[in-house]
Simulated assay, not measured.
Amino acid sequence: MRIDHLALWTLDLEKTREFYVRYFDASSNDKYINPKTGLETYFLSFESGARLEIMTRPEVLSLKQDYTKRSIGFTHFAFDLESRENVDNLTDKLFKDGYEIIGEPRVTGDGYYESVVLDPDGNIVELVCR
């Protein structure tokens, strides 16, 4: 058994799609639109086989994640970039492009080299290597 995909609500479907395609080499399917409900989605696929569904609907609340508070639910997801140099380079690129870096590159207590960035909706994304 394996997880097929994870899904995220977003306020800006195109901006979120561009973030994961541009910085994490995701490939995207064509947009799905349900004319009855207003649901719009993309499935983003990654080289590892993982998939992320990003979704929006007119009634999605405009409450962004607040990484400074702990609450029930998913806390983050991580991309294995395979080297410290890749972590450093992508962290720098994201910073220069205006994304909020909430954790500078460092070695964690559990042995990862990681940095942490917020996606366009404030979701925590870890850039890691072992």
Score class of each variant (00 low, 15 high):
40 E>M: 11
116 V>K: 04
109 G>V: 09
42 Y>G: 05
18 E>V: 14
28 S>H: 02
14 E>H: 08
3 I>Q: 04
46 F>P: 05
4 D>I: 11
20 Y>P: 01
86 N>M: 08
39 L>M: 15
2 R>Q: 15
47 E>D: 14
76 H>Q: 06
130 R>K: 06
80 D>R: 01
109 G>R: 06
71 S>D: 10
67 Y>W: 03
83 S>T: 09
82 E>V: 04
57 R>C: 03
60 V>I: 15
109 G>K: 13
72 I>N: 12
117 V>P: 04
76 H>K: 07
44 L>P: 00
14 E>A: 12
21 V>W: 03
29 N>L: 03
41 T>E: 13
21 V>I: 14
18 E>P: 00
107 V>F: 07
94 L>E: 08
129 C>N: 08
81 L>Y: 09
62 S>Y: 01
81 L>M: 04
12 D>N: 09
6 L>Q: 03
75 T>W: 03
31 K>D: 06
43 F>G: 01
65 Q>G: 03
53 E>K: 11
36 K>P: 00
102 I>R: 06
24 F>C: 05
35 P>W: 09
112 Y>E: 11
71 S>H: 04
112 Y>A: 09
7 A>G: 11
96 K>R: 15
75 T>E: 14
10 T>I: 05
71 S>M: 08
90 L>Q: 01
90 L>R: 05
50 A>V: 02
81 L>F: 04
25 D>F: 09
44 L>I: 01
101 I>L: 09
123 N>H: 11
29 N>P: 04
23 Y>N: 12
74 F>T: 00
100 E>K: 07
99 Y>P: 02
128 V>K: 07
107 V>L: 08
80 D>G: 04
117 V>H: 05
103 G>L: 13
42 Y>E: 13
85 E>L: 09
117 V>I: 14
79 F>Q: 00
69 K>I: 07
19 F>Q: 06
102 I>K: 03
121 D>E: 15
122 G>V: 11
91 T>Q: 11
82 E>C: 00
89 N>Q: 13
74 F>K: 00
40 E>R: 11
16 T>V: 11
39 L>Q: 14
76 H>Y: 10
80 D>H: 02
107 V>I: 08
45 S>H: 10
64 K>S: 10
103 G>D: 13
77 F>N: 02
55 M>W: 04
73 G>Q: 12
118 L>S: 10
62 S>G: 06
67 Y>A: 06
73 G>I: 08
49 G>C: 05
60 V>R: 09
57 R>L: 14
108 T>G: 07
94 L>P: 03
24 F>D: 04
25 D>I: 01
63 L>Y: 02
129 C>L: 05
47 E>L: 15
13 L>K: 05
99 Y>I: 09
101 I>S: 04
57 R>A: 15
1 M>P: 01
41 T>P: 00
45 S>M: 14
67 Y>H: 05
108 T>L: 14
77 F>W: 15
42 Y>D: 15
109 G>I: 10
30 D>R: 08
69 K>F: 13
71 S>G: 09
121 D>R: 00
4 D>F: 09
116 V>N: 10
10 T>G: 03
39 L>W: 03
46 F>L: 09
30 D>H: 12
115 S>L: 10
128 V>T: 13
5 H>D: 15
106 R>C: 12
101 I>N: 02
113 Y>K: 00
105 P>F: 13
78 A>D: 06
86 N>F: 07
24 F>R: 02
94 L>W: 14
88 D>M: 01
39 L>C: 10
49 G>M: 08
45 S>A: 15
78 A>F: 05
